[in-house]
Amino acid sequence: MIGQTILAFSISSLAFTGLAATPEPHTAPNLFADYLGKTQSEVDAKVDGAFQQLFYGDEMTERLYYPVEGDMAYIWDVASDDVRSEGMSYGMMVAVQLDKKQEFDRLWKWSYTYMRLDSGPFEGYFNWQNATDGTKLAPGSAPDGEEWFATALYFAANRWGNGQGIYDYQRQADDILRHMLHKQSTEKTLPIIDREYNQVRFVPWQDWDGVTDASYHLPAFYEIWAKQASADNDFWAAMADHSRAFFKEVAHPDTGLMPDYSYYKETDREIGDHKDFRFDAWRVMSNVALDHAWWGEDPQWQVMQSNRILSFLSQFEPNIPNQFSVDGTPLDRTSSPGLYAMAASAALAADREIGEPFVERLWETDTPSGHWRYYDGIIYMLGLLQVSGNFQVIE
C-alpha cells in the first residue's frame, strides 16, 4: 500500500467527541496600512482598480466576469476556455466581501442553473467544469467549490438578508453542507466529507478514497459553519481542529511547503506529481493565515508555519519559482503573481520583518491580465482583499 498510514493514524486519533466551543471572530488587519503606511483612500483605490479590471475590464485581455442573458454571469477560465466551480465560488466571495450584490446574484444564478446537479449520486453538488454556454463537461464535484459556495452564501445571508427560492442564501448553504456530509455512498461515489476521519476528500469518487487536498482544508470556514449552519454545528467545529492538526502533519519540517494532494489513510491511488508543492498548494498559505487572523485558535504553530514558509520562499527573490518539491527543490523557473498574492496573505500570521516584503511585493504587483489571468487573477484578488483588511467574517 502506498498510503501514508502515520498521517492517517495521527489524524484519526482526534476522534469526534461532540460538543465543541466556537470562538469569536477577530477583525483581520489592513497590512497595507499597518506595514506600508498606505492611506485608506490609496488602499480602496488599489482594491477597486483590481475589481474593476477583473470584472469590467477589456473583454479580450483583462476581465474574468462575463454577464449573460437571464441576469446571470460566469467567471471564465481563459486558458482552458471553461467555467469552474472554483472560480464561480471565488467570484461570489469577492462580491459579497465588497458588497456587490448584483454581481453575486448573477454568479450564483449561473452556478445554480448550470452547475448544480439535480439527480444521480452527485445530486446537490456542483459540477466542477462547464462550458461557457452552461453545458456540463467533466462530471463530478471539486469540493473546494462547494466549500466556498456555502461560506459565501452564509455571508450573503448576513449582509443582505434572505430572499426567495435560490436567493434564500441560508437555506441554500445549509443544503450544500447537508449533501457534503450526509450523502449516501454508492459503488463508485462517496460524500465529500469523510465522517470517520473528519476530512474533506479530494474528490467524492471511491477510487480516490484516502486522498485529500490541503488547499481544500478551510478551518476558518468550518468555524463559520459551526456558528451559522442549521445542523451539525459541533461536527464542523471539530473538523476545524482536525484540519489544523492535518496541516501540522503535511507541512515539511524545514521548508513549510505542503503538497497538492496527501494521503490520510491507506490507498493504492497514485498521486504522481501532486505530491509536490504546485498550484493548488499555493492557497494553503492563505488557509493557515486567514484562520489565524479570524480565529487565532492555534497561534503559536500558525505563526511559526507562516514564518517558516515565507523565510524559505524569500531565498529565491526576486523571482520565486512557482513549483517545488516539498523539501525545497525548485521544479520550475516561472514566477507567478498568484503565488505572491498567497504569500502576502501568509503575512497575516507571520512576524512583520518576514511578512512585510511580501506585502510590499503584492502592492507593487499589477492586476494579472492576458492569457493566464484566470487563476493568477482570481487568487490575486482574494489575496488583495485579505491583505487590505477587506476579507472579514460577515456576521
Rank of each mutant, 00 (worst) to 15 (best):
E69S: 15
K248T: 09
W225Y: 15
D273T: 13
F246Y: 15
T61P: 05
P337E: 01
H26D: 02
W160Y: 15
I192Y: 00
N130F: 00
D58R: 10
K46T: 01
Y112T: 09
D376R: 04
T5Q: 12
Y35N: 06
I166R: 13
N322V: 04
R159S: 11
Q4F: 10
S262Y: 02
Q228I: 00
R333M: 05
D133P: 09
F358A: 03
A21M: 11
E297Q: 14
K227S: 14
I394Y: 02
D82M: 04
T186N: 07
A350R: 09
L339I: 08
R63N: 08
S80Y: 07
P191V: 01
R195M: 12
D298Q: 14
T255M: 04
F55K: 01
S369L: 01
I379F: 12
M342R: 04
D175N: 12
Y340D: 03
W301G: 04
V43K: 08
H182Y: 13
F122S: 04
K265T: 10
A21W: 07
G210A: 06
A20M: 10
H182F: 14
F149L: 05
I354L: 15
Y35R: 12
E297K: 11
L218W: 02
N322G: 04
D58T: 09
D105E: 15
D105Y: 13
A15G: 09
F16E: 09
Y35I: 01
E59N: 05
F247H: 08
A28P: 00
G37D: 03
T5A: 12
A156E: 08
V96K: 02
K46M: 13
A346M: 03
L14A: 14
Q97Y: 08
L31T: 06
V303E: 06
V359I: 13
F235G: 02
G124S: 05
W295F: 12
S336M: 11
D213S: 06
D241Q: 14
Y374L: 04
Y216Q: 03
A231G: 06
S119N: 12
W372T: 13
V211S: 00
A20D: 01
A131V: 00
D44K: 14
Q52E: 15
Q129Y: 00
K109D: 05
H179G: 01
R283N: 08
G124Q: 10
V211W: 00
I271L: 08
P321K: 05
S12R: 14
W295P: 01
P321Q: 09
Q102N: 12
S230F: 00
A50Y: 02
E249A: 13
